[in-house]
Amino acid sequence: MAEVFVKNEKSYKVQKIISNVLTFSFLGAIAIVVLVPFYWMILTSLKSSTMIESIPPILFLKPSQWQIWNYKALFEIVESGPRAGQPLFPFFTYMKNTIVISIITTIGTSITTILAAFAFARLNFKGRDIVFAIIIATMMIPGEIFILTNFLTINKLGWYDIMNQSYSDAIFAMTLPFMTSVFYTFYLRQTFKQIPNELYYAAKVDGTTDFKYLLKVMIPVAMPTIITIIILNSMGAWSAYIWPAMVTTKDQFRLVSNGLRGAFTDSGSGRTDYGQQMASAALVTAPLLVVFFVFRKQIMRGVSRSGIKG
């Protein structure tokens, strides 16, 4: 009897070890898949162009081989000429624009998304479901199609005057079309719908208005979803490319994504200085990584959607 027990315990232990090995090797493999591009970015940013084209590829670099030059070049100052004293690659200008755009679109999107989701989830008005269905249906239209209409709108609003577009014009033009999101509205509405009616009734009895209920109860309760939306939206704004290039007339209004694309490609030979490009990509990625590490709890919570219990 005791022997059987020991044997069982043993096989249980073996089983556990095997399952652990499998789990961790799977997770390890996934982690490698995720990390390799980052590693490659950093590695490339530390290589000279001849190291980059080396075959077979160089997989590791000793610190003594690092070409910090790629990073330094990003902050080089033009020595002479009419642009003297200005940075060669206006990294900080691009970065500032990207941050401004991300913040504005994210705030805008959050506000419109929250209000729309609230209306569709909580308020009763005539034609609500039809309007919602129509809005959802627009998700089937590919975003590229909106570029032209958005462009015309922005032009009509006077924000795309190529002769004298001001910084605020450019900011409005870049952000306005992205201040709403059907998908996020839908996503948040579903979360709002999961909040039990009784919570609303309780709040009503406790003397809150609809708006106060939204502010004090729905938003805090749906916070994981809202944080997910904020993160996804700011990441989208961070990497937006086509639209910002379309509606900005001057280089100093552009985003880091636009800057990265063109700045390191030789207009004559069409060749790209990958070392510098990756160095600046690393610098652009760094803030995102910091944000991820700081907010990883919220992000994970948002992603795993710890639903609201009734």
């Binding site: 033009v78 002479s80 000429g81 200005q86 060669l88 700045a263």
Partner: peptide
């Protein structure tokens, strides 16, 4: 399409 930093000569012409 000349990125900043590559326009020095063009700027001079201007």
């Amino acid at each position: 399409i000349y990125g900043s930093g590559k326009t020095a000569l063009l700027d001079k012409f201007i």
